[in-house]
Design a protein around this nucleic acid. Structure first.
Length: 957
RNA sequence: GCGGGCGUGGCGGAACUGGCAGACGCGCAGGAUUUAGGUUCCUGUUCUUCGGAGUGUGGGUUCGAGUCCCACCGCCCGCACCA
């Protein structure tokens, strides 16, 4: 960076806006903002209340960044893109009369922090604290207008005390499917005990043993211990959630193999909220892309449950196409289906056992390999198609998944591509039950026929049914799938063989991890292994200090290893004597920790009331900052006004946080139904990365270009795009930019590069453009040799005033819409014009200089504060009203409009701004160029004249 | 395969509900300042055979299309045997 730095030399004027001067200005204002508490946002109640400032600052606005992991590598210039965006927006909103809550915390628990600590051999608490301190320094140097009083770290016991408290709330809650909300578990016990609610198996409450009662209650809790298939990752030494497993069956952290194993683990009943998590997406101002991803992840399908009679009892399937039931010619069960043992006949026993063993040995990854050739074996048994009465064979195959629907399907080979392939492979019959339209055959280049042997694939869509009738249900001739579904479902319900039902892809959330660096569970077990939540008075359960924080990991492929939590080893901590209300007893602590997502499920709520020792957040404070805003829309769900972050959290953090928020809402702790009313996904900063012939990344900053090729140490290297980062050896640190140009230039460059939601390549050489602009802005108001203001009290000329007010008008609009790149372009245009005025007159008019300073302030706050002070103001401009355009100056008396002949621009004419069609036409027809372009055509015979007043004229001869 | 998004100068990107394509910045070229380089400033910069042509390709709607519709090509993202 040395060729960018050292801008000051003896040739330069003393008060030129150089990197050194910028640094001096920036550090000075950062200190002053802190000293004055400039960005502290008052609360309506509690320790941070300030009624006077609350009244002064205006409407509330909660602006939130996705908080970072404090990794050891520190920041590169890609990280703060979103933070700069939210800071500019927050500063703009303060100047337009808003009380803005804007702060930053640290998501410091979790695997990355722990792995870093393991690498360096230092306790995670020490490395985490150091990393947090370093990131705080780097972020402060950017001039972000955070309310520092509200900053939190998820690893602070005063914070995770409440994470644990929320866990006990969830543990002590159940989901009432009639009222469609979570309720305290005590109310369920009360309903069972008082006969208002029947117990699941009908046994009277009084007749149940205490253990049976406990089991029944525990089965209803929203946080529960379950012995179920989970994702075991030996390479990480822990189990992980479905959302943390990639499509090819590996961990998203570390890329280790993941195995399905039955283990006893904590689960959260997020599936109870599946419908609300989908339905409430309609209330959110989020991008369609993220909404679609959440909807797909939850995966709600409407269909029907159908019972097929068999010798061992009914086999229940789920189908989205009950209308095709007449075409069901066989059934397929997942290999793990519980009825397989009973269904398997003696002569199929060996084949079935073999197949099940193969399927079990396959990892998820192999089960969805690229060939996807169908495999399976018959069980030897049959079941009865309820519509046709036919006996159809029952197979097992691994293309049917135990984890979705009922783990069994009815196979309709003519109407489902997978069933079609399976039937072809094993020579099973494929009767047609719909007559596809002629176009379907034409597109596949075959003759229309109901003989499916000629079909290349299954038919899916609307078409008249054939061969679909029994004594009491006739679909033949019906042309609509929806109608067919309705008729079949009604028939099934009438005969007690099925009913409409809904199924989901979403599974319950695996919530425990066998690691050290996370929140301990606020749970202890008695001698019988029953869990007890700890009362509020015993929180927080502090993470015990130890040297052996490193988890036990295994050979990544050692499927049959078993997790060992680091906390298990700390026997003095694990075994405790507590009085939980019935006298002191010995208990064992839960030795799992929570997943890294726990702390980020509610951090925005703690920002609201960070020092409250009695509650996680004061209700009136939550109501003020996050309550529903019916002024925005009648069904506004409440929540953060603007949430900015990367798209990578589309289904992890954003789903979990919505779930917790809804539980807390149901239990009456919150007024907002959703945590994040508006979500904005910022893009990434990309950078070139270079690989040598071995495929190893080389230092991107020592690569040179010649004739369109790139060289490193004389060897040619290949270029590719990538996210900026250490692993690609292309990271640029913000510290380098501070030294070379200052923080304001870096901020301005990142905002000017392009729209905030687009990813864009970093080009260090482009940064100088914004630096030059700030130098020119400085020079329009400051004498470079004396450092004094050159602003005059002269009135600006008409042209300048009109340009100023047009600029104000546009900049306000663009900043409000987060389009900072275009706002910056307009400010540069204005400043370029003012530069000419200064060159001509020796000074800039005050009204222009002040407005320009205020407009630049959200983007480049340090230089703006300095200029504001040089212009004679004592106070910070942080809450000075943003300039307002004078409508009278937005309208010109005369405007230039283009004249088109047949849609091509041939001339430009000046017309009065309020000219009507007739006047514009006559002016256009009198123009020399127009007359020439019409080539003698008589104006009175024009076929068409289109006039858009104030915009353009189009003449068609 | 299914779903979503995007293709504009040498580069990053502008262009409101269809109405002057290429704002602003980088780079490049020329000039001024400077002993010189760098810095800073000024001017020019889509291509062009100077008629025009031009927003990935081909078609359509329209007085008028980067913008709307259809097909295709290319790139990016998500999901992936979900019954």
């Amino acid at each position: 960076m040395s060729d960018h730095g050292e801008q000051t030399s003896e040739h330069q004027p003393t008060f030129r806006y150089s990197a050194t001067l910028a640094q001096d200005i920036e550090l000075r204002w950062q200190d002053r903002w802190d000293a004055d508490g400039t960005f502290e946002a008052p609360n309506p109640a509690g320790p941070l209340a300030d009624a006077g400032r609350l009244a002064d600052y205006g409407d509330k606005l909660f602006v939130l960044d996705m908080f970072p992991y404090p990794s050891g590598a520190g920041l590169h210039v890609g990280h703060p893109l979103g933070y700069i965006g939210t800071d500019v927006y927050s500063r703009f909103k303060r100047m337009t009369g808003h009380n803005v809550l804007y702060t930053m915390g640290f998501d410091a628990f979790g695997l990355p922090a722990e792995q870093y600590a393991v690498q360096t051999g230092q306790h995670p608490a020490i490395t985490t604290d150091a990393n947090v301190a370093n990131m705080r320094r780097q972020l402060r140097r950017l001039g972000l207008s955070h309310d520092r009083r509200r900053s939190i770290s998820t690893t602070d016991p005063e914070y995770y005390r409440w994470t644990q408290w929320i866990f006990t709330q969830i543990f002590n809650a159940w989901y009432d499917t009639e009222q469609e909300r979570a309720r305290p578990i005590a109310e369920l016990i009360d309903e069972f005990a008082s006969w208002r609610r029947a117990t699941p198996d009908g046994t009277p409450w009084d007749a149940l043993s205490p253990d049976a009662r406990r089991r029944m209650i525990d089965d209803h809790r929203l946080a529960y211990v379950s012995d179920a298939p989970v994702n075991w990752c030996p390479g990480l030494g822990t189990v992980v959630a479905n959302e943390e497993v990639t499509a090819d069956g590996r961990s998203d952290r570390g890329n280790f193999p993941v195995f399905k194993r039955n283990m006893r683990q904590w689960m959260m009943r997020i599936t109870a909220y599946a419908d609300r998590l989908i339905d409430d997406l309609d209330l959110l101002d989020w991008s369609d892309a993220i909404i679609t991803m959440q909807r797909n992840w939850i995966g709600r399908s409407h269909g029907a449950r159908v019972d097929f009679a068999s010798a061992v009892g009914p086999i229940t399937v789920f189908t989205t196409r009950p209308d095709t039931l007449f075409g069901a010619t066989f059934m397929v069960l997942a290999p793990e289906h519980p009825l397989v043992d009973q269904l398997t006949t003696a002569d199929q026993a060996d084949a079935v056992a073999d197949y099940r063993r193969q399927a079990a040995a396959k990892k998820d990854a192999d089960r969805q390999d690229d060939t996807r050739e169908k495999s399976g074996v018959p069980t030897g048994s049959t079941a009865t198609n309820p519509l046709t009465g036919e006996e159809i064979p029952v197979w097992i195959a691994d293309y049917v998944l135990m984890g979705y629907g009922t783990g069994a399907i009815m196979a309709v080979p003519c109407g489902d591509q997978r069933d079609f392939e399976f039937a072809r492979r094993f020579g099973l019959p494929i009767p047609a039950i719909q007559e596809p339209p002629a176009t379907w055959f034409a597109e596949r280049d075959i003759e229309p026929s109901l003989d499916t042997a000629t079909w290349p694939e299954a038919f899916v869509g609307d078409a008249p049914y054939v061969n679909s009738a029994n004594a009491s249900l006739v679909l033949d001739g019906v042309g609509s799938v929806n109608e067919g579904k309705a008729m079949t479902t009604a028939w099934l319900a009438e005969h007690g063989l099925g009913e409409p039902t809904v199924t989901y892809k979403l599974r319950d959330w695996l919530f425990s991890r066998q690691r050290y660096w996370g929140e301990p569970f606020p749970i202890v077990y008695d001698d019988a292994g029953n869990p007890y939540p700890l009362p509020d008075s015993m929180l927080p359960v502090q993470l015990p200090d130890t040297d052996s924080f490193s988890p036990r990991t295994f050979d990544a492929d050692d499927e049959f290893s078993n997790p060992e939590s680091p906390l298990d080893r700390l026997t003095e901590w694990v075994n405790v004597t507590l009085d939980l209300g019935d006298g002191p007893k010995t208990y064992r602590r839960d030795t799992n920790v929570m997943p890294q997502w726990a702390g980020s499920c509610w951090y925005e709520l703690r920002y609201l009331d960070p020092t409250n020792a009695d509650r996680f957040v004061d209700p009136s404070v939550e109501q003020y900052w996050m309550g529903p805003r019916t002024d925005v829309r009648p069904d506004h769900p409440g929540g953060v006004d603007l949430y900015v972050g990367g798209v990578e959290h589309a289904v992890l953090h954003l789903l979990y946080a919505r779930f917790w928020h809804k539980v807390l809402y149901d239990l009456g702790h919150l007024s907002s139904k959703e945590p994040y009313a508006r979500l904005f996904n910022q893009g990434y900063i990309l950078a070139n990365a270079f690989k040598d012939e071995r495929g190893i990344y080389v230092d991107a900053f020592s690569v040179t270009e010649a004739d369109g090729h790139w060289y490193h140490d004389g060897n040619e290297v290949t270029r590719e795009w990538g996210k900026m980062g250490k692993s690609l050896k292309n990271a640029v640190s913000p510290d380098e930019m501070y030294d070379a140009y200052g923080a304001d230039t870096l901020r301005l460059y990142e905002m000017a590069m392009g729209p905030l939601d687009a990813s864009r390549p970093w080009e260090t050489r482009d940064v100088v453009g914004m630096y030059r602009f700030l130098q020119r802005l400085w020079r329009t108001m400051v004498d470079e040799s004396t450092g004094r203001s050159i602003v005059s009290d002269d009135v600006a000329d008409e042209e300048t005033r009109r340009l100023l007010h047009r600029t104000i008008d546009i900049v306000r609009t663009e900043m409000d819409a987060l389009r900072f790149n275009t706002a910056i372009a307009k400010l540069i245009e204005l400043n370029n014009h003012v530069t000419k005025v200064v060159n001509a007159n020796g000074s800039a008019p005050r009204e222009v200089a002040e407005a320009m300073t205020l407009m630049a302030a959200p983007l480049v706050p340090h230089i703006a504060e300095e200029l504001w002070s040089l212009l004679g103001h004592d106070d910070s401009l942080a809450r000075h009203p943003f300039p307002v355009a004078d409508p009278a100056l937005l309208l010109d008396d005369e405007v230039e409009i283009p004249v088109q002949i047949r849609g091509k621009v041939k001339a430009r004419i000046m017309v009065p701004a309020d000219a009507d069609e007739a006047l514009i036409t006559s002016i256009a027809l009198a123009d020399d160029k127009v007359i020439a372009a019409l080539e003698g055509a008589d104006p009175s015979t024009l076929r068409k004249v289109i006039v858009v007043p104030g915009r353009m004229v189009n003449l068609v001869p």
